[in-house]
Amino acid sequence: MSLKLVPELYCSDINITKHFYVNVLGFTVKYERIEEQFAYFTLDGVDIMAEGIDGVGRRWLTDKMEKPYGRGVNFQWDVNEIDLMYQRVLEHAKDDIYLEMEIKEYQCNDQVAVQKQFIVKDPDGYLFRFCCDARGQNA
């Protein structure tokens, strides 16, 4: 079994979070523990866990949780179908778009990375930057 980074984020309402990740972003539920208000989501090799703040599971909190929970962090993930994902967000959660689709160049040592990207805010304020290699694409 290989280990990888899988963020576990607290949410104010697991059902709203589940709807957002599944119906808006297109993730699937890998498994869930309903009694703990916990769900594990996956899409294109991207995994993320969400747990209701009022669930019965253990809590690893370093301070009081105040909305928006995602202050100061954004998660970047490569996805296979960025245009399809962006269209879903436009149709179902347009007001949650934090950064509209763009093509951006980033200097990476002696190379320039070109990525197509957008940022969406989930119901609890976490920011997700979805991207793909943009060489030869238009925003």
Rank of each mutant, 00 (worst) to 15 (best):
K4H: 08
L5W: 10
Y10M: 03
C11F: 03
S12P: 02
D13K: 08
D13E: 10
I14V: 13
Y21D: 01
N23Y: 05
N23G: 00
V24Y: 07
V24F: 06
L25G: 01
L25N: 01
F27D: 03
F27M: 05
T28Q: 15
T28P: 11
T28W: 13
T28L: 14
V29L: 09
K30H: 08
K30G: 06
Y31N: 11
I34T: 05
E35V: 13
E35F: 15
E35Q: 15
Q37H: 12
F38D: 00
F38I: 00
F41M: 01
T42G: 05
T42V: 10
L43E: 02
V46P: 04
I48R: 00
A50S: 06
A50Y: 09
A50G: 02
G52E: 06
I53V: 11
D54K: 13
R58I: 13
R59W: 03
W60I: 14
W60R: 14
W60M: 13
L61S: 11
T62E: 09
D63E: 14
K64T: 12
K67R: 13
P68W: 14
G70N: 02
G70T: 04
R71D: 07
R71H: 11
G72E: 06
V73Y: 11
N74Y: 15
F75V: 12
F75E: 04
Q76G: 08
W77N: 09
V79W: 03
V79T: 09
V79K: 06
D83Q: 10
Y86L: 02
Q87C: 09
Q87P: 00
R88S: 13
R88A: 12
V89N: 03
H92A: 14
A93P: 01
A93Q: 05
D95W: 09
D96T: 12
I97S: 05
Y98G: 01
L99W: 08
L99E: 10
E100K: 10
M101G: 00
M101K: 08
E102P: 00
I103C: 05
Y106C: 01
Y106I: 09
Q107H: 14
C108A: 15
C108S: 15
N109K: 15
Q111W: 15
V112L: 11
A113N: 08
V114T: 13
V114R: 10
Q115F: 12
K116R: 12
Q117G: 04
F118K: 02
F118M: 04
F118V: 01
V120Y: 01
D124L: 02
L127I: 07
L127E: 07
F128W: 14
R129C: 14
C132G: 07
Q137L: 13
N138V: 11
A139E: 12
A139M: 12
